[in-house]
C-alpha cells in the first residue's frame, strides 16, 4: 500500500529551455512507496505542464519571487490552507532565496522542503566560486564580478580572450573581444541584473553531475553525464551517463565538505590534461534528472523521502551508457482551460 502525499512543485516550463518540474514529477510518480498528488505552481500561464493533466493534478498561479519573498510565500500558505501540501520542491535558483528564508514558516505550517541552507546557497554562487575553490581545495576557473561597463576595458589585464560572460542566475556567453563582452553584458543585465560574472574560459569537454546530499555530508546519489546534443541555448537535448570515478569522487568530496542539503548539479569541464574544473554549482535538481531515474537512481523520490524525514539508503550504482533524448510535442488544449487559469489563478 503506497503512502498518499501531496507534492507541490515549480519548474513547469517544459520548453526549449526546460525547467526541472516535469522530470522531477515523473520520478516522484514512479515511486514504489508514494502515491502522489501533484500540485503545479506556475509563474506564467503558458507553462506546458499546467495543461499536462497526467503529470500535474492541479495548478495554482504564483507571483514571481521578484515581487518579494513574502508575497510568494504568503501565496503558498494561502494555497496550503485550501489544498494542503506535504512537500514543496522548488526548482528554480531564483526562487530558492525566498524559500530558504522562509523555511521555518513553511515548516511550522506543515510544509516540508529539502533545500540548501542560505550559507550553502551563497558560498557556491557564481560570483563566489573562486573563494569556494580556495576554501575546499577545488579547481575552479579564475573569475571576477563586474558591475559597470567601465570595468570591461580593464579585463584584458587579468583575462585572456576568449572569456565567459555569465548572468547571476542564468545565461552564459563566450566573448572573443571587448565589444562582445559589452554586448553580452547589456543583454544579461537587462534580464538578470547585476553583477555580471566574467570567467576564464577552460578548453575541454563539458560534463555534468546530478547529485543529492543528505545535509550531513553523505551523497545519497550521483550520476555523471555528458551532453551529446546541445541546443543554441546551451541546454542538453541528448545526454549519456558516464563511468567516471574522478567525477564521482569530486562530487562526494563537495557534498561531504559542504554538508550539502538537497539537489545539486555540478557543471564541470574536463581539460585535456583530464583535470576537472568546476564551472558552476547549481543548487537544485537539473532538467535532465530523469536520465538519473532511468539509470537507476530515483533522486526526486529520494529527495521527497529526505524532506519527510525518512531514512534513505544511498544509491551505490547506476547504469552506464544510458541515454536520454528530449523531444517536443504539440499539446492540444481548450481556451476554457487557459481562461480558467488566467482569471481564477488555478486549474
Amino acid at each position: 500500500m503506497k503512502t498518499k502525499i501531496t507534492v507541490a512543485l515549480t519548474g513547469l516550463n517544459n520548453t526549449d529551455n526546460p525547467g526541472p518540474g516535469v522530470p522531477v514529477i515523473r520520478g516522484i510518480r514512479e515511486s514504489e512507496i508514494f502515491d502522489p498528488r501533484i500540485i503545479g505552481l506556475a509563474y506564467e500561464n503558458l507553462e506546458p505542464a499546467i495543461y499536462m493533466h497526467r503529470v500535474v493534478d492541479k495548478t495554482y498561479q504564483v507571483p514571481y519571487p521578484s515581487e518579494g519573498s513574502g508575497v510568494l510565500v504568503n501565496r503558498i500558505l494561502e494555497i496550503h490552507k485550501k489544498d494542503p501540501i506535504d512537500v514543496l520542491v522548488p526548482n528554480y535558483d531564483a526562487e530558492l532565496y525566498a524559500f530558504m528564508r522562509s523555511s521555518e514558516i513553511l515548516e511550522q505550517a506543515g510544509i516540508k522542503t529539502f533545500i540548501p541552507t542560505l550559507e550553502q546557497f551563497e558560498e557556491r554562487h557564481k560570483a563566489n566560486l573562486p573563494e569556494f575553490g580556495k576554501k575546499y581545495d577545488l579547481l575552479v576557473p579564475f573569475s571576477k564580478s563586474i558591475t559597470g561597463t567601465d570595468e570591461i576595458k580593464k579585463l584584458a589585464d587579468e583575462f585572456d580572450y576568449p572569456l565567459m560572460v555569465k548572468g547571476k542566475f542564468y545565461d552564459a556567453y563566450l566573448a572573443y573581444n571587448e565589444e562582445q563582452v559589452r554586448m553580452h553584458y547589456n543583454k544579461i543585465t537587462a534580464k538578470w541584473g547585476l553583477p555580471v560574472i566574467i570567467q576564464e574560459f577552460i578548453k575541454g569537454t563539458e560534463v555534468n553531475v546530478v547529485a543529492l546530499g543528505d545535509g550531513k555530508g553523505n551523497t545519497i546519489g550521483a550520476v555523471p553525464m555528458r551532453k551529446q546534443y546541445i541546443t543554441d541555448k546551451g541546454k542538453a537535448w541528448s545526454g549519456i551517463t558516464l563511468d567516471d570515478p574522478n567525477m564521482l569522487e569530486l562530487t562526494r568530496r563537495i557534498l561531504e565538505k559542504t554538508k550539502w542539503r538537497g539537489g545539486m548539479e555540478l557543471e564541470l569541464v574536463k581539460s585535456h590534461k583530464n583535470e576537472l574544473y568546476i564551472i558552476e554549482i547549481n543548487p537544485r535538481i537539473p532538467a535532465w534528472v530523469y536520465l538519473a531515474v532511468g539509470a537507476g537512481q530515483n533522486l526526486p523520490e529520494a529527495m521527497v523521502k529526505l524532506a519527510l524525514g525518512m531514512e534513505v539508503k544511498p544509491y551505490e550504482t547506476y547504469e552506464v551508457g544510458k541515454m536520454f533524448i528530449r523531444y517536443s510535442y504539440d499539446l492540444i488544449t481548450d481556451l476554457k482551460e487557459f481562461e480558467k487559469l488566467s482569471t481564477l489563478g488555478e486549474l
Binding site: 553525464m225 558516464l242 563511468d243 552506464v320 551508457g321
Partner: peptide, 18 residues
C-alpha cells in the same frame, strides 16, 4: 578495461561518452 565493444563493431567509451 571498461571499453564496451559489441558484436556489430560498435565501441563505447563510458568515461568520455564517445
Amino acid at each position: 578495461k571498461n571499453i564496451a565493444i559489441s558484436d556489430s563493431g560498435f565501441v563505447f567509451n563510458p568515461t568520455t561518452g564517445d
